[in-house]
């Protein structure tokens, strides 16, 4: 017994060191597995408020750029709107559309913390549970998709960025509807990879990639990026495709949060089928 105490006293620094390291590693692993396991991220109250208080300073520099995008989007929306109006007035009658039901709701939010330099990047936005944000909502900027909400606190939410090696967003080629998933290889914040496209599919440089709408998170057809490079991998049956993202995540500031009203219903249906199998 005495020798054990002697050992502990002699090596107490190293033992303490090992304990702290084990503790840190456990945190890394549990955080990698489940975002809610440890509530020490930047969407918690303390760090959230500090970032929110600081945000005006940084967003001031982005105002000019942001305005330009908003005007562009407004112009696009106006085009769409007037196209539909003309179509309606040509009919000379009003009709009730019973087939269409609104599935997606959009809300605005502001990014208060953003990172692009890690391997697994997260954003914090300034709205949370109290403002109606829930887990698994999509987040997009004016230019294109940004990420998916993974955790919410009362007033803030944590968003898994597209630039996260753990993410995977269901996407398709707009021209021919072949679908795959978008992931990040943690190299350049402007480029991501499109996986699972078989190599018999006709692919061109400059093809637009949009969301597929299969994931219950994003509606169909939201812009993601354009193909800048593709080649056939050695023995694999799939292409290696590199996309340039439409949204500049370094400058993203204001975003839309997308709520899928039927998300739960869709998920339950899927669960039921899986249980049967």
């Amino acid at each position: 017994m005495l020798s054990i105490w002697k050992f502990i006293i002699k090596f107490h620094v190293s033992i303490f060191f090992v304990i702290l390291e084990i503790f840190a590693f456990l945190m890394i692993i549990s955080y990698n597995k489940n975002k809610e396991a440890i509530f020490l991220h930047s969407a918690n109250a303390f760090t959230g408020y500090i970032y929110k208080w600081l945000n005006p300073v940084f967003s001031y520099f982005a105002v000019k750029e942001e305005n330009k995008f908003l005007i562009e989007e407004n112009a696009w929306l106006k085009n769409v709107l007037y196209t539909f109006q003309r179509f309606d007035t040509a009919k000379f009658r009003t009709f009730q559309d019973t087939a269409h039901q609104q599935q997606y709701l959009y809300k605005t939010a502001k990014i208060i913390y953003n990172s692009i330099s890690h391997t697994n990047n997260y954003l914090t936005i300034d709205k949370g549970r109290k403002q109606g944000i829930e887990k698994d909502m999509g987040v997009m900027s004016v230019q294109g998709i940004v990420g998916i909400v993974v955790d919410v606190s009362d007033n803030f939410s944590l968003v898994l960025s597209v630039l996260n090696s753990k993410g995977g967003i269901s996407a398709k080629i707009r021209n021919n509807n072949y679908f795959g998933s978008v992931t990040w290889d943690a190299k350049d914040y402007r480029y991501v990879k499109l996986n699972e496209i078989p190599n018999h599919v006709p692919v061109k440089i400059g093809d637009s990639i949009v969301t597929s709408g299969y994931s219950h998170i994003f509606p169909q057809g939201l812009p993601i990026g354009v193909i800048t490079r593709f080649f056939k991998k050695g023995n694999d049956n799939f292409y290696d495709i590199t996309l340039k993202l439409f949204s500049d995540l370094k400058a993203a500031d204001n975003v839309y949060v997308i709520k899928n009203i039927f998300q739960q219903e869709q998920q339950q249906l899927l669960k039921k089928v899986k249980n049967v199998q």
Partner: peptide, 16 residues
């Protein structure tokens, strides 16, 4: 770590 969403990573390296 709390500020940068990298729980445990800075921790382990500073202790090291």
């Amino acid at each position: 770590d709390m500020f940068t969403n990298t729980i445990g990573v800075n921790c382990a390296s500073t202790v090291m």
